[in-house]
């Protein structure tokens, strides 16, 4: 297909909307991700708030420990933003270390989540509420994991000096994604851990 390469696509001057298509695409995609979470939240609400089904067995949702975890994830959103600020000052090492800090905070978050799974005392197979608890937090964990991979790629590209203050849609997109993961966690934390009636007292 060398014939195609020689073709020069004509220059495009679209209608001026002032929108960045890549960023817009990402945000629309994140809306649909939010809808995917919505499906699981719908089930959660159906069971817990309308059906009033309780968690299996005697155990407690570790809301206090998870608050610390929430703080860690919220903090990582700030470090992700520092990367962009550092880039605007053309401080490449600053970008790298901000990303690294975000990566480390995200990893700690994920590690603590796995730890929580281990101490919960019930499994995804234990009743419907056990299933939805693991699915919601697991789906979010999967998104954190994807975010970590993206941060890794961003760090690689920082090392090869691919971001400039003028052209860094990739970095911007990764930070938007990371904020999205953060926001979803805050919603999830509120609904699953904090709303009245969600926490069963330790038996």
């Amino acid at each position: 297909m060398s014939a195609a390469v020689e073709h020069n696509a004509p220059e495009v001057q679209p209608y001026r909307t002032g929108l960045n298509p890549n960023l817009m695409g990402l945000i629309i995609f994140l809306v649909s991700e939010l809808a995917l979470f919505g499906a699981f939240f719908m089930y959660y609400g159906h069971m817990r708030f309308i059906g009033k089904v309780d968690y299996p067995g005697a155990f407690h949702i570790p809301a206090n420990e998870t608050s610390i975890n929430t703080l860690i994830l919220v903090l990582s959103s700030f470090t992700a933003e520092f990367a962009l600020l550092a880039l605007l000052k053309r401080h490449n090492a600053g970008v790298f270390f901000s990303l690294l800090a975000t990566f480390i905070l995200g990893s700690i978050f994920l590690g603590l989540q796995v730890h929580e799974y281990m101490i919960l005392g019930f499994t995804p197979q234990d009743t419907a509420v056990g299933s939805i608890f693991f699915s919601l937090t697991g789906l979010h964990g999967l998104h954190v994991f994807v975010g970590l991979v993206l941060l890794l790629l961003a760090m690689i590209r920082t090392c090869t000096h691919k971001w400039t203050p003028e052209k860094h849609t990739g970095l911007l997109g990764i930070s938007v994604y990371w904020h999205f993961v953060d926001i979803v966690w805050v919603i999830l934390f509120t609904v699953v851990y904090c709303l009245p009636g969600t926490v069963t007292a330790p038996a």
Partner: peptide, 18 residues
């Protein structure tokens, strides 16, 4: 898992809603 199963206290109507 037990989202919609009888044994696990799932809800078959929840599937229909979603």
């Amino acid at each position: 898992t037990n989202f919609f199963t009888i044994a696990g206290g799932g809800s078959a109507i929840a599937y229909q809603h979603i």
